[in-house]
């Protein structure tokens, strides 16, 4: 399954990854190869087989009591942020 340049560009756009024009053919080649490789899955007969999304079947979600356990630590958490002001994380102007 060979992916086109346009397909790679649109996947990269969806994943918000900036790719240089030199990178595109590299990923075109390797993603195509990976898709060919995983194409082997078609060989398996999965009629009536349920998808398995957790490795431990039969477990169910535990529920947490509705209790507030957190305090305001925004200054500590924002120490890692590239740009903040007045407690807000800043990004370039978003126009809706």
């Amino acid at each position: 399954m060979a992916l086109t340049r346009e397909q790679i560009a649109s996947i990269a756009a969806l994943a918000r990854l900036d790719l240089s024009s030199a990178e595109i053919p590299v990923y075109q080649d390797s993603l195509s190869r990976i898709l060919d490789f995983v194409g082997a899955l078609d060989r398996a007969d999965t009629t009536d087989v349920a998808p398995m999304s957790h490795p431990l079947p039969g477990l169910s979600q535990r529920l947490r009591p509705d209790v507030v356990t957190e305090q305001d630590r925004h200054e500590q958490y924002q120490a890692n942020a590239p740009q903040v002001a007045a407690g807000l994380y800043l990004v370039p102007k978003v126009i809706e």
């Binding site: 994943a15 990854l17 990923y27 898709l35």
Partner: peptide, 19 residues
């Protein structure tokens, strides 16, 4: 994301996005 991630990570993100 393009500059922060290396080639293999980007490859896997794109593979995953595609599938």
């Amino acid at each position: 994301r393009g500059e922060g991630f290396g080639a293999e990570v980007k490859r896997r993100i794109m593979t995953g996005t595609y599938v």
